[in-house]
Design a protein around this nucleic acid. Structure first.
Lengths: 228, 228
DNA sequence: GCGACCGTTCGGCCCGGGACGAACTGACCA
DNA sequence: TGGTCAGTTCGTCCCGGGCCGAACGGTCGC
């Protein structure tokens, strides 16, 4: 039986604006230093230290120490899933960006970005749609790779054994309001795209752009050719 | 962009032990009165009132007033999903029941219960396994009804149009540690089983038992015959 | 109409926890 | 070996929010 106190403890970890900001920042799937997170959240370093301790003690974050730096990242994919699920409930509040810089940053995110370890934004949705159109992904009764889809992934040299993680899973996109592919399959695809240089990160954030090579590859591989 | 403050506000709703207890109680999918929840959570009625206000204002609960009673229930299936997902992270803490009454109650829950609007426990897992064995449900690349599965549901007169809700979805069972069928399909099956009297609720809780009629029907329909 | 009962509002109490700055440790660099 | 910088520990302040009991307002049943 789930104890109410455990649930409350877990929720309490995210019930603070500073900690929430830190977790959302870490949703980009990379490791941040304590100082970076402190600046990002707008609190003193000492305060950040305490928050990071609570989050790691609570099992949401994993830490790695390198010299005088303390790197933290989300503990595992299930934490990212939890954050996504909670964010999905909030999607309608779409805070309008003010100012030109915020607007272009937001436009870049809407075009394409990583969502922990898979692709999201219009790019993520386009890939998902293409997979479905080609009969590799089945959305009719859930979100699952078809027989053909499993063969296709294998043909690309992408392995799908990911322990207890679901192979294919829907993740709701807060810009597109449509589901895109997550789970092990989504993560492998994203890895591949980045490794081959088909998509590249913009600056240090979550936003990504499709490279010229990527345009060719996407058209070639999945018949996607309208990506902006 | 998801605002950290919104996420924190949502989490704060569940970050209180009393509110958490209320939400978990409501996971049985039924409507409770404010007084019942107050007693269940062990707080004064006035305190319960305040908590219920916060939960409804936050969109987690929906209320219906009947005479001098105030009935509340989870606002929608997505709230139940969120609670399940969070509980799944906590599963390992399996609090051992102490005392005979607690033990028999817990055994009944492990045998079969409702999980918001679908079946869980050994019963839920058995149904899920049977559907999979018969080629109606595909777990290989996610959780999805097969073509045959969609036809079978239609043949049973079960409609699957559920708005934006996924048709089939995995829900992790905290007693069995295995996924069972949730989503629209899971809900329709559970409805049907209850409506036909194949399973019946035990007392006022979430536990259910298979009736003699149910035993016959389950064997007949899905080849399940080991249910205890 | 009169109790009995459910829920609500309000005032007051108390505790937890989030914030900061100052002082300290330990790693890196000249 | 001293200076700098990242992170930590500790003392302190203060606010928000959870709890209760008492009083109040509807609704139901007799």
């Amino acid at each position: 039986m789930t104890a109410p106190s455990s649930l409350a403890q877990l929720a309490a970890l995210l019930a603070d604006e500073t900690r929430a900001a830190m977790c959302l920042a870490l949703l980009d799937g990379r490791a941040w230093t304590a100082g970076e997170l402190a600046r990002h959240a707008g609190v003193a370093r000492s305060t950040a230290t305490e928050h990071l301790h609570r989050l790691t003690a609570g099992g949401l974050l994993a830490e790695e120490r390198q010299g005088r730096h303390r790197y933290v990242r989300l503990a595992d994919a299930s934490v990212a899933t939890l954050l996504e699920d909670m964010s999905a409930r909030l999607a309608p509040d779409a805070t309008r960006p003010t100012g030109l810089r915020a607007a272009t940053a937001s436009a870049a995110l809407a075009r394409g970005r990583t969502c922990y370890d898979h692709l999201a934004g219009r790019l993520g949705v386009a890939v998902t749609d293409a997979l479905t159109a080609r009969g590799l992904l089945d959305q009719s009764g859930g979100f699952a790779l078809t027989e053909a889809g499993l063969r296709w992934m294998a043909g690309q040299g992408l392995r799908l054994d990911g322990g207890k993680r679901p192979v294919a899973r829907a993740c709701l996109d807060w810009t597109e309001r449509r589901p895109h592919l997550a789970g092990v399959a989504g993560a492998r695809l994203c890895e591949r795209f980045l490794a081959r240089g088909w998509v590249a990160r913009i600056g240090s954030g979550r936003a990504v752009r499709v490279t010229p090579d990527g345009r060719v590859a996407l058209a070639d591989l999945l018949g996607i050719d309208g990506v902006d």
